[in-house]
Amino acid sequence: MSVWLINLRIFMFLMISFFYYWRILDSDVFLKGVVIVAAVGFVLNHYLLFHNESFAYKLLVIYLDGLLSFGFGFLFPNSTLYLILVGVVAVTLFIVVAESKKHRIYGLLFVLLWLMVMAATYLQTGELDFLGNLLSISIVAFSAVVGNLIRRLIEASEVMNEQFLQLNVAHEELSVAHQQLQSYSHQVEEAAKIRERNRIAREIHDTVGHKMTALFVQMELANELIKYDLVKTKETMGVCMDLAQGALEEIRFSVRALKEEEETAFLPSVHRLIEGFYQSTGLQSTLELRGNPSNIQIALQLTIIRLIQESLTNAKRHGDASETSIKLDCLPEKIRMEIKDNGKGASKIIPGIGLKNMKDRITEMGGELVYESVENKGFRIFVEFPLAEKRWVIGGTS
């Protein structure tokens, strides 16, 4: 209960007690003593009411205040000021008690006591101020309504405070979860980088190692042919140069991929990748971006960069393409990407290491890959990553 309401309550008790005391004749020592005892009782009850949390204890104190208030009605039959005290008690009662059934019981007790005071007044004075009593009764009823509203306000305030505390706890838990999510995101990113580096290491071993082995075989053959046939020796040296050039390109691609791992900005990394590929191979590329790329999580950004790199490599290496088109749509619920080239294409697609790695990487991120090719009409891939929902179908039909 608010401090101002507590102070107003005891002020009303003492003020009404003082009015009664002031109206008593000096010769009537007994009544003055009763009023003083009642005032002291009000003060003690007020102190006890707000220093004990027991509901039954508070109810007992309110009963005592009510009896003291109605006692003024019996002792001073010509005054209805006691009903103001009863109104203060009613405010306190309706603040403490929440059950409407008990409100009706207390209301009935109040009416009975009020009728008893009116009967005693009529017996002592032969008069009955019905209008004055009715006015005072309306004040008591209004006090009860005010008490009920105050109780509801206090309950609402307590609920708001509890919800505020819960909100603070939820905010702290959300902050911790956010920090854990950031940490997990960094771990996922690092894991993705490690997987990508392992993949590049395997590709170096499989492709460059294969080309270097073939190069050594051709060089040994050229060393033997130089003694007998210079024409075939030159042809063999040409093959050696092609193998060396291919191995060099493989190494450049791998070094570029490892370098891109250290980049953090998504679009600048894509721009550098495309520009670097053009400078080293002459492959022209067009990038179309729609939507906000900031919706793409870091691990998925790395996957998209690797897909673009793999597509450009395949377009130049296997399709002998001169142009590629990259379209990236960043939607709130998904990411769509289409990459196509003007290479020589193929009537039948036999997935190699690059396409297999690409599909594994996309599946790992919950995405789908579709590719198609027509001979002499280039190669096209279409990739889609869901952001809000990931779905895998294992077995059966979908």
Score class of each variant (00 low, 15 high):
Gln182Asp: 08
Ala119Glu: 06
Phe164Pro: 00
Tyr122Thr: 09
Gln166Cys: 07
Gln166Lys: 15
Phe142His: 09
Leu112Gly: 08
Gln163Arg: 15
Asn168Tyr: 06
Gln180Met: 01
Ala141Gln: 04
Glu162Phe: 11
Met118Arg: 09
Gly132Ile: 03
Val117His: 02
Leu167Gly: 12
Leu167Pro: 00
Glu158Ala: 09
Leu112Pro: 00
Tyr122Pro: 01
Asp129Lys: 01
Gly147Phe: 02
Ile150Asp: 04
Ala170Pro: 01
Gln182Trp: 04
Leu135Ala: 13
Leu135His: 09
Leu109Asn: 05
His171Gln: 13
Asn161Ala: 11
Glu173Cys: 04
Ala141Lys: 00
Leu128Ala: 08
Leu174Val: 03
Leu167Val: 03
Ser136Lys: 01
Gly132Leu: 05
His178Val: 01
Ser175Trp: 00
His178Gln: 03
Ser175Asn: 04
His171Phe: 10
Leu134Thr: 14
Val111Pro: 04
Leu128Ile: 15
Asn133Val: 07
Glu127Met: 07
Trp114Gln: 03
Ile154Arg: 09
Met116Val: 03
Leu123Asn: 05
Leu113His: 02
Ile150Val: 15
Ile139Cys: 02
Leu153Gln: 13
Leu153Asp: 14
Met160Leu: 13
Ser157Thr: 07
Asn168Ala: 09
Leu128Gly: 03
Leu128Met: 08
Glu162Ile: 12
Asn161Gly: 07
Val169His: 07
Gln163Ser: 09
Gly132Met: 03
Leu113Asp: 00
Met160Val: 11
Ser157Leu: 08
Ser138Asp: 07
Leu112Asp: 02
Leu167Glu: 06
Phe164Gln: 12
Ala156Cys: 01
Leu135Gly: 14
Ile150Glu: 05
Val146Leu: 10
Gln179Cys: 00
Phe130Lys: 11
Trp114Glu: 06
His178Phe: 02
Asn161Glu: 13
Phe110Tyr: 14
Ala120Lys: 03
Phe142Trp: 09
